[in-house]
Nucleic acid binder design. Structure first.
Lengths: 187, 187
DNA sequence: ACTACTATTAGTACCAAGTGCTAATCCGGA
DNA sequence: TCCGGATTAGCACTTGGTACTAATAGTAGT
């Protein structure tokens, strides 16, 4: 196998499995350890321990992110319990269809739904029913601002209607009506 | 500081920052490196390189998972393009409210929405409007089976209605109507 | 006061997985 | 045949450890 091809494969291999030592790599390519070292040097590929460090760092960041973003999608900026609330959600390439770059609907829904849950002054509010409209496609890089407003309450049925309108710049991209169920009694 | 307290703090510290060497730790607690080693030994805490390895391993797994689970939430089991499709989604503790253990609505929506997109024989199908009902709370450990059925099409408007019914065991937990927009013309 | 015990510290040899450097060897082409 | 790139080998040194032994300090028990 020519040198160039070996180095290409080395890069790919380490990308998908950064845990391989030079020794293991040398066996895989049936060359000496020194050759592997030279290959890494030329390709600018760091040693095993550095690779693990960066991969591990990535994890720690992701964990913080996913913890945040799973609990409430979007950052809540302002909230008046039982009245209204506002959150922003920055769309990244993680949230879009690869094919056309348009945000997957469930992310917009998730932001709106999370906000509807948060605006209710109730630990255990649940969504019962919802009608939603996706008005304009949202792309990666867009900042989606969701505004939730508590519309009416039926204390008897423990139900509340929350309306959410999401915008990007001046344009409304999403609207939703969320019928929420209150599990605890009001004060 | 008593030994016990130091060891407790050591554990907490390394949990949130696994990148610290024994040397750095010894400075932090102003004890010798050897004491740190003994503390790790007694607490069953592995060395830096082992810690990074496990953290990095976790990442690689997560990455595979999130790639899958972001593209389509739930595993598609069966699909007849333009007719019907079926997916399952195993709820874990990651998907529920901490307070009451009930699945966050947007996960059920995401499964249904993904399935509605998938069943359309169209690369770029988008959700336009949707009405959904959360009928029964879903808990961690439940296996949610979503069935999507293409109801009617309006070729002129390029719109299609897809109905999704999600069940856990015998019980229907979620229903949704998804009005989908077809971006490419039918053959 | 002497002993026992615990916690801490120091020091040694060793290991894995490297870097950095020098030197030797092989192999193909002008 | 001689040159040059590619490969291999060898050695000293580095990090961040393990494993083990030994010394020291302080404290409680009798």
């Amino acid at each position: 196998m020519p040198k160039k091809e070996r180095q290409r494969q080395l890069g790919l291999l380490l990308e998908e499995n950064p845990f391989l030592t030079d020794g293991e790599l040398s066996e895989h390519f049936t060359v000496s350890v020194q050759t592997i070292r030279l290959d890494r040097l030329e390709g600018g590929i760091p040693e095993l321990r550095e690779r693990l460090k960066t991969v591990a760092t990535r994890t720690m960041k992701e964990e913080v992110k996913s913890l945040h973003s799973d609990e409430i999608i979007g950052d809540i900026i302002d909230i008046e319990l039982d009245k209204k609330a506002l959150s922003i959600f920055d769309v990244t390439t993680d949230h879009v269809f690869q094919r056309n770059g348009i945000t997957r609907g469930h992310h917009l829904f998730a932001q709106a739904n999370s906000l509807a849950v948060a605006v209710m002054d109730d630990d255990l509010a649940l969504t019962v029913k919802s009608t939603i409209n996706f008005l304009k496609p949202v792309k990666a890089g867009d900042r989606v601002v969701a505004r939730a407003e508590v519309k009416k309450e039926s204390l008897l049925e423990k139900r509340t209607l929350v309306e959410v309108v999401s915008t990007v710049g001046e344009e409304t991209v999403f609207t939703g009506e969320f019928y929420m169920f209150r599990t605890t009694d009001r004060k």
